[in-house]
Amino acid sequence: MRITRRRPAIIFFIALGVCLVGVAIALNIGWIILNWRRDWPMLVGIPFFLLLIAGVVLNTIFLVREVRRNERHDSFLNAVTHELKTPITSIRLYLETLQRRVLSEEQRQHFYSIMLADSERLLATVEQVLKAGEVGQRARNQVRVEVDMAELVRHCVETTLLQHHLAADTISFTASGSPLLVRGNPDELQTAVMNILNNSVKYSPHGLRARVRLAPEGDAWIVLSVSDEGIGIAPAHLKRIFKRFYRVPARQVLRTKGTGLGLFLVRSIARQHGGDVTAESAGEGRGTTIRLLLPRLLEHASPSPLE
């Protein structure tokens, strides 16, 4: 609804910019016609009008970007509000039920497990928002150590299966090549891998089938590839999904709640470690592959501060 209301504003600013550019061009042509025989007005007037046109175009682009950024901020606030309010409401409801009614021990344990899951969801949302605010600020003060990516990814896969109550064969994991070491911050790298896996779970509404592969790429890089058979991504959005607050404007995606920070964190962490992340998809409904690229550490090294 908010996006729909913002579209007239974008159209207005674009139309206004086009009109102003048209007026500026008309004035420029009139100036040239009136002063084409005089050198000094021509030398001063033409650059001035070109600067005026460039300023109008840049101002229009800036305004449209600001409107779109505000749209993403609104979507983020709505998503965070939902992600915070839903588990809090659920926990409160079960607490009121426990307070007002006499329940069997089995029912009480069932309620406790639900409240614990809701509290973990609430904590995960808060941590994601906090990490997004901290990203880039602690990079200079981090101490990086040798990290075994095979062990880290295996742990993340097991954690994902446990958190989402998935069967063991839901996610297949293979690691080829040895050693698969990087120098980095283990907590940050785990956050990146967990966000990729959680995205696969979140956007596979008809059941997750994911393939996780970790392998070296030459001598310089390690590549983590996570492929699923979920709702997929249209080609136009493959690069945008790594922007802060960005969510693909597709019906299936909008039905799935999220903050729009997960892949932004993945990209930020990857780049802080000297790597990058990319997304591949054949289109909507045809699954997605996320590739995390990290510099490979070929020799064992002692901990060293990030320069």
Rank of each mutant, 00 (worst) to 15 (best):
M194W: 00
N195H: 13
N195P: 01
I196S: 09
I196M: 14
L197T: 11
N198F: 10
N198H: 08
N198I: 01
N198E: 13
N198Q: 15
N198T: 14
N199K: 07
S200P: 02
V201T: 12
P205C: 04
P205L: 03
H206S: 15
H206M: 14
G207I: 05
G207F: 02
R209V: 11
V212D: 06
V212E: 04
L214S: 10
P216D: 14
P216Q: 13
D219P: 03
D219W: 01
D219G: 15
W221Q: 15
I222A: 13
L224F: 02
S227N: 07
S227E: 13
S227H: 03
D228G: 06
E229G: 09
I231H: 00
P235G: 07
P235F: 02
P235H: 11
A236I: 13
L238Y: 00
K239Y: 02
K239E: 15
R240C: 09
R240D: 15
I241F: 02
I241N: 07
K243Y: 08
R247L: 12
R247W: 05
P249L: 08
A250M: 13
R251W: 10
V253G: 06
G258Q: 09
T259G: 12
G260D: 08
G262C: 09
F264V: 07
L265I: 08
V266S: 02
V266F: 00
V266H: 00
V266N: 00
R267H: 09
S268P: 00
S268Y: 00
A270G: 03
A270T: 05
H273K: 03
G274D: 06
G275H: 02
D276P: 06
V277Q: 05
T278N: 07
A279F: 05
